[in-house]
């Protein structure tokens, strides 16, 4: 792994974002729309129901911001790859001495930068608009952030592998993959609120114990270490599997001679 190569690839994405500020707008616009819609809905519910619903707004806004960590990390990986496809640059990168791990690391870094932008803006707006302070999660925020980001990276690699395998026709998957799993990772509700048969499925994803943990911390101030260990352990497995899948598909496209067709189409 060469830091020089990774930073060169990241530099390319930074140039891209400074050249086309519209891309920054996208990073901020949708999360804000979501935030405002859900913020207002929960305010409405809160006003029209008894006191026990008081915690709702915290759950919702907290979940939304944390969800965006996962989503932006996934997007960072998948969109960075698509940028290379869209600009017919993929071949230049693949004939350069860039290792797969270096290429992926650069997309991870882009994912991290995208999260920072979105999360900072969302946190500010939810604080100013709805007096929701994300820092009430205190130090727990750090493992939440890390675990969701890593899971986002894994999902990003899976999306990228799908695009590599099925070509640009599969591009919409780049956007859709996180939403396939959103219902089962209990972003906005508790695992126990799900049908009994679906609960074991929910526990197969590292995001589930994190969202559970977030609610625990909001109510009790601490979260169970078991949840944290589960999230970390699952993440290691997901990251390894997704990396392996990506490498396998990349090799398959080389075998089938699709890499070049794909990169110049």
């Amino acid at each position: 792994m060469s830091f020089r190569i990774i930073s060169a690839l990241v530099l390319r994405y930074l140039f891209l974002y400074t050249r086309t500020p519209m891309r920054l707008v996208e990073l901020v616009f949708w999360p804000l729309v979501d935030l405002v819609v859900w913020g207002n809905v929960t305010v409405f519910i809160q006003k029209n129901s008894d006191a026990q619903f008081g915690g709702f707004i915290l759950f919702f806004l907290g979940a939304m911001i944390l969800w965006d960590i996962l989503f932006r990390a996934q997007q960072g990986v998948a969109i960075s790859f698509l940028e290379d496809v869209w600009t017919r640059n993929l071949l230049n990168v693949f004939v350069a001495p860039v290792r797969t791990a270096e290429y992926l690391s650069a997309t991870f870094a882009v994912g991290f930068l995208r999260i920072l932008v979105t999360v900072v803006v969302m946190s500010l707006v939810s604080w100013i608009g709805y007096s929701f302070n994300i820092f009430q999660l205190q130090w727990w925020l750090l493992p939440f952030f890390l675990n969701l980001m890593v899971f986002g990276w894994a999902l990003g690699m899976i999306s990228t592998a799908l695009i590599l395998r099925w070509g640009q026709a599969a591009e919409s998957l780049a956007w859709a993959v996180p939403f396939f799993i959103q219902p089962v990772v209990c972003v906005f509700y508790r695992v126990e609120d799900m049908p009994a048969w679906a609960q074991p499925i929910a526990w197969c994803f590292p995001a589930t114990p994190i969202f559970e943990g977030m609610r625990e911390v909001m109510v009790t101030g601490v979260m169970s270490w078991n949840h944290l260990w589960l999230a970390g352990g699952l993440n290691v497995i997901y990251l390894a599997l997704a990396g392996w899948l990506f490498a396998w598909v990349l090799n398959l496209t080389r075998k089938r001679g699709l890499l070049t067709k794909f990169a110049t189409q």
Binding site: F15, L16, R19, T20, N89, A263
Partner: peptide, 16 residues
């Protein structure tokens, strides 16, 4: 093949 169209020439060359 092409270098990324949305960057300036020197930016592309610097990256490579």
């Amino acid at each position: 093949t092409a270098l990324p169209g949305n960057l300036l020439v020197w930016q592309n060359l610097l990256v490579f």
